[in-house]
Nucleic acid binder design. Structure first.
Length: 633
DNA sequence: AAAAAAG
């Protein structure tokens, strides 16, 4: 890196005396560059020299050694080490989270064991003005050496489709609305460019920074980037992941969310923050207390953006984005990511964007055919026994004695507790997570599930979106959601990072409104649809749905709504699609199946394909149990 | 009639 550290402007992060005549002024004096450096609280902790003193003593600096420790690092990192369960790799330490979340498993494997070829065939749609061309490798992007090193450390070998397209767009400073299948690496797609952007900002001279009118602020954090997420756990996860990407770059990342002591989070902010990851409520609180200002935000990312803009969240998010000190669209860079993007939400979201590029990676509907989807008709009163049958048979088919991580979604918080207690009573090690639990319990539940201590997690939709829990082999929709988008996100907790997974849904009478959308989604993903479900779909849609209905029809987005706009004086460049080959490794030992497929019609796969490996996994888990196998469909 | 997000 060529910047001269001694002349770098260090943004203040702690109440520091500033002569009144310098406040909120762009002073020319060089006292700015020398004054901050005297304070040990200043600086961004570049990992050496003065910066390292600013690190919290409990921050994890024990691994990785110096810049020459790369090889040793890789060795440690790729070895999960001994543990009760093979996924306890966070205990190998390389990217252990710091501070109070060091107990939260950071099991994100980068995309190390991942079969990236599974994504090669993904069709990608792009639209908007002057779409920057995709890259084929991270090396094609102009990332700084430190960031590139971290990308390697995380074992990111090559970019996923969404990363190939989104990263150049983001690096070009363009606004972005991105729709990509669950588990395909969205977090990295916005984190890499943001970290890169922050690094470029760090390289600026004091004069450049002051010329932008960015003054010092007493006791008020002014992050350069803001990442919003809909749940506390997701914001933690993004924080943990972003920290790995920013390791030893000096980029400071802080997380803020409710249910945890705000003072601790203030303390974290005081140490300096470049990138703030937050849930909306806590962020608003902090802004109102004048401990955070959004005035310097240059990068805004909304993860699960469609959720952030749905009915419950929209006012809060709109307030943050439009009514606080946030620079307006076009001044800041805004990136919205989700696996689903209903048209109505796209319209709302376009308020936040300026001349944006729309990306859609994955098949229409954004469900993935890496997930084998099964639907069983189960009357409500029979659900418990059916669940038990499923669990018993997969228990006996577990590979090598390892528990099969099973995520069971229910409708209500009370229902989650009740089912979990019943399961525990019946001898199934399980734990529940929902929004009525105190934060510590929520985190404990997640950890206990991740590590396999309780291989069954009963959850509400709090766990439906974004959470990356490696090795979830089975998602059971004990209660189906009302909204097909939620279904897409729920089943997306399995089949992540190129692995295949299984999703089983219990469909009861009251789910009739979902039938049509479910059928369309399953057909899109080349899943076998039971005939009774087809009948449900037809019956319900003909007699109960006079016209296009909220819960029927494909509404996940996957296409730029501007394409359909009749006001189109603009010329969009549509449908840039790629197709290649794929190989898939399912979870579990015995049942690997792979294939390759060349497709010329832009990635729409043959019906036989998805089922071929889906059935492999399915048979692996259930094929030996005639009772269960016979009871399906 | 649900869940989530501030306390």
């Amino acid at each position: 890196m060529s910047w001269n550290e001694s002349t770098r402007y260090q943004r203040p992060t702690r109440p520091t005396y500033l002569p009144p005549h310098l406040r909120d002024q762009p002073p020319i004096t060089d006292s700015i560059s020398s004054s901050p450096s005297r304070s040990p609280r200043f600086g961004r902790g570049r990992g050496r020299g003065r910066g390292s003193r600013t690190r919290a003593p409990n921050q994890d600096r024990s691994w990785g050694g110096g810049s020459g420790g790369g090889d040793r690092f890789r060795e440690t990192f790729s070895d999960p080490g001994p543990g009760p369960y093979p996924y306890s790799q966070s205990q190998a330490q390389p990217f252990r989270s710091s501070e109070r979340f060091d107990e939260l498993e950071v099991v994100e494997e980068g995309l190390s064991n991942v079969n990236l070829d599974a994504y090669d065939e993904t069709p990608v749609e792009t639209s908007g003005f002057d779409v920057p061309p995709p890259v084929t490798s991270f090396a094609d992007v102009h990332f700084s050496a430190a960031l590139m090193e971290n990308i390697k450390r995380c074992n990111y070998v090559k970019p996923t489709p969404i990363q190939r397209y989104a990263i150049p767009v983001a690096m070009a400073g363009r606004d972005l609305m991105a729709c990509a299948q669950t588990g395909s690496g969205k977090t990295a797609a916005f984190c890499f460019p943001i970290i890169s952007g922050v690094l470029k900002d760090h390289a600026k001279t004091p004069a450049q920074i002051l010329a932008e009118g960015r003054g010092m602020n007493l006791n008020m954090a002014c992050p350069l980037a803001l990442i919003l997420a809909p749940t506390r756990e997701l914001s933690c996860q993004i924080h943990d992941e972003a920290k790995k990407f920013a390791y030893k770059t000096g980029v400071k990342i802080v997380v803020a969310y409710g249910g945890a002591p705000i003072v601790q989070q203030f303390r974290n902010l005081e140490r300096g923050v470049d990138i703030l990851v937050a849930t909306p409520g806590r962020l608003v609180d902090m802004i109102e207390r004048a401990r955070v200002s959004l005035r310097n935000v240059k990068f805004l990312a909304l993860d699960e953006a469609d959720r952030m803009l749905d009915m419950g969240f929209e006012p809060q998010v709109r307030r943050i984005v439009q009514q606080m000190e946030m620079p307006r669209a076009g001044v800041r860079q805004t990136m919205l990511f989700s696996a689903t993007f209903p048209t109505e939400i796209q319209k709302l979201a376009s308020d936040f964007l300026s001349n944006y590029i729309f990306l859609s990676a994955g098949k229409v509907g954004s469900s993935t055919d890496l997930i084998a989807q099964k639907v069983q008709f189960v009357a409500d009163m029979d659900k418990k026994s059916r669940l038990m049958s499923l669990l018993i048979s997969q228990r006996s088919n577990g590979s090598q004695g390892k528990p099969i991580l099973t995520l069971v979604f229910v409708e209500t918080k009370r229902g989650a507790d009740a089912l979990q207690q019943w399961l525990s009573m019946k001898g199934f090690p399980s734990i529940a997570i929902h929004g009525d639990k105190v934060q510590l319990e929520r985190e404990r539940a997640l950890r206990s599930f991740r590590t396999g201590v309780t291989p069954i997690l009963v959850a509400t939709d709090v766990a439906a979106r974004g959470l990356d829990i490696p090795h979830v082999a089975h998602v059971i929709n004990y209660d189906l959601p009302r909204d097909i988008d939620d279904y897409v996100h729920r089943i997306g907790r399995t089949g992540r990072a190129g692995k295949s997974g299984l999703a089983t849904a219990f469909f009861s009478d009251k789910n009739a409104p979902l039938a049509k959308a479910l059928v369309e989604l399953m057909m899109e993903a080349n899943q076998e649809v039971p005939t009774w479900l087809l009948e449900y779909a037809e019956t319900y849609s003909s007699s109960f749905t006079p016209r296009v209905n909220r819960s029927s029809g494909i509404k996940f987005g996957g296409h730029d709504y501007r394409r359909g706009a009749s006001t189109g004086t603009e010329n969009y460049d549509y449908s840039n699609q790629i197709a290649d080959r794929r190989d898939v490794q399912p979870y579990g030992a015995g049942a690997s199946s792979s294939y390759s497929c060349h497709s010329s019609d832009a990635g729409y796969s043959s019906p036989a394909r998805a089922n071929s490996f889906g059935e492999g996994l399915y048979n692996h888990m259930y094929g030996y149990n005639p009772v269960i196998a016979g009871g399906l469909n």
